[in-house]
Design a protein around this nucleic acid. Structure first.
Length: 442
RNA sequence: GUGGCUGUAGCUCAGUUGGCAGAGCACCGGGUUGUGGUCCCGGGUGUCGUGGGUUCAAAUCCCAUCAGUCACCCCA
């Protein structure tokens, strides 16, 4: 049996990394709940036809299949695939359970998703998304589009990570503008404009001519739109100054103004209107979001989403929604790679109870129990080695305290091995400073 | 899925025209019948990513494959 090797794109963290991840997930969850989002988990698989509604991305869906498949059994339409994101399963869940839900329905969902992409730094085939969505019946008020960045801003600012900037745009602005200048294929235009940062305006103009049939003047107009970026509502004036008129464009401008105004009032500096942002899945119909870590811009977006009006409908009833998703695995993978996150110890243990002799293990277990009853994580030393080695066992793991049971009727003592201070203590009363109770992520 | 680069100890890396696998740090044992970190002594802990091929001989050359990474595609 040869040594097992990792599987490309399926990251496995070390215990300290997992402690950081659990901490981060906990903080994100707390923020989501502070905003009233209800928890939800959906199954890992969806019928393939549900997953394939997304067009081109379908080739990245992992299909579920039994090793010994029944040749005469169901196939094709009934096949199952691992979900590709959390929005499509949520839309399916809403349709399936519409009768039991109260609308508007706001939920958060933190789960793994799978994409059969070629992995590289920050890109995985199995990763965790932390997703919030709000759906309503028939119509969804635009103020929810303004609320999404606020939640994300609070969630990410509560973490020991670099500051973020949420870039917002609105599909209606793009589509209305493109229509206003006479371009019929907004998808193609968006695709080309999206490459602006990467390949520059000249090549984008060429691409627009080639793939979207744009004239020189049309391409120039699209580029002028894409270059508009502002932290306040001045972007709307800049767009209007381009002289293009279209009802959809006006609608989009009004909506985006509201998003930017709300964000500026709640968290100055968090959001910036950036009219080149076009990415995200193709079902977005209104506001779209993308999020950069300041100082790590080259890693791309760590959180994105948008409004979707057509993802869920049953008969004549439609369920428009808006959502945004934190790419937790990407965020952590990038910061781990940059050595930008640390945890104060590699195990949860706060106290190592030293073991003078193997005969005293029952007594040491009682000490540990007393500490645990009061919420202090502890473990008893693995063996009655020399105390120096027991201290070193703790030191290697970052365990801050070693507890020495008193010998011959003497009282117990506890030592802070960072400072070397040692003091008499009783397991029923001693407590560490609050900062030492749990590992600290920073 | 397509193309490029990389892969030697836990980590960072040396390894000549193909000729017995090395260094620093880390780690382990001892000095120190028991309270660590400094210091001294000792220890290499390895399928040279994996599998084939060429050769008297492969870490080194060739092929394939896996993993990492970059670009494309797409995206968290």
């Amino acid at each position: 049996m040869s040594k097992p090797t990792p599987i490309s794109g399926f990251p496995e963290w070390t215990p300290p990394q997992r402690m950081i991840e659990q901490y981060v997930l906990g903080r994100i969850r707390d923020t989501f709940e502070l905003y009233g989002f209800a928890p939800l988990e959906t199954r890992a698989v969806e019928p393939l036809d549900q997953l394939l509604r997304k067009g081109e991305t379908s080739k990245e869906v992992y299909v579920l299949r039994r090793l010994q498949e029944d040749p005469g059994g169901p196939a094709g339409d009934d096949a199952l695939g691992l979900h590709f994101d959390l929005t499509v399963p949520f839309a399916r869940y809403v349709l399936e359970n519409a009768g039991k839900l109260q609308f508007p329905f706001r939920r958060y969902q933190i789960q793994k998703v799978w994409r059969g992409e070629r992995p590289q730094e920050g890109r995985y085939r199995e990763f965790v998304q932390a997703d919030i969505d709000i759906v309503d019946r028939d119509t969804l008020p635009a103020h929810y589009e303004a609320e999404m960045p606020l939640v994300i801003g609070d969630a990410l600012r509560a973490l020991p990570i670099p500051p973020v900037r949420i870039q917002v745009n609105n599909r209606k602005i793009c589509e209305g503008f493109y229509r206003g200048v006479g371009l019929a294929d907004p998808e193609a235009v968006l695709r080309a404009v999206d490459k602006l940062d990467k390949i520059g305006p000249e090549k984008v103009a060429a691409l627009l001519a080639e793939t979207a049939g744009a004239s020189e003047a049309q391409a120039k107009a699209c580029l002028a739109l894409a270059e508009i970026s502002a932290p306040d509502t001045s972007f709307a004036d800049a767009v209007r100054a381009l002289g293009v008129t279209d009802p959809l464009l006006d609608e989009g401008l009004d909506e985006l103004v509201r998003v930017v105004e709300t964000a500026a009032a709640h968290s100055p500096g968090l959001c910036v209107a950036d009219l080149r942002i076009a990415r995200g899945l193709d079902y977005y119909t209104g506001t779209v979001y993308e999020t950069q870590l300041l100082g790590y811009e080259r890693f791309g977006s760590v959180c994105s989403g948008g409004r979707y009006d057509n993802l869920a409908s049953a008969g004549t009833t439609r369920f428009p929604g808006v959502g945004i998703s934190i790419g937790v695995t990407r965020l952590l993978g990038l910061l781990f790679g940059a050595d930008a996150l640390s945890v104060s110890r590699s195990v949860p243990t706060c106290v190592l109870v030293a073991l003078p002799t193997e005969e005293q293990r029952p007594a040491c277990n009682r000490i540990a129990d007393a500490l645990r009853r009061r919420g202090i994580a502890c473990e008893v030393s693995p063996s009655a080695a020399k105390f120096g080695k027991q201290i070193r066992y703790a030191e290697r793991r970052g365990i801050p305290y070693v507890w020495f049971p008193g010998a011959d009727g003497n009282p117990d003592e506890v030592k802070d091995i960072r400072s070397g201070e040692q003091a008499v203590a009783e397991p029923e009363h001693w407590a560490p400073p609050a900062d030492d109770l749990r590992p600290v992520v920073s």
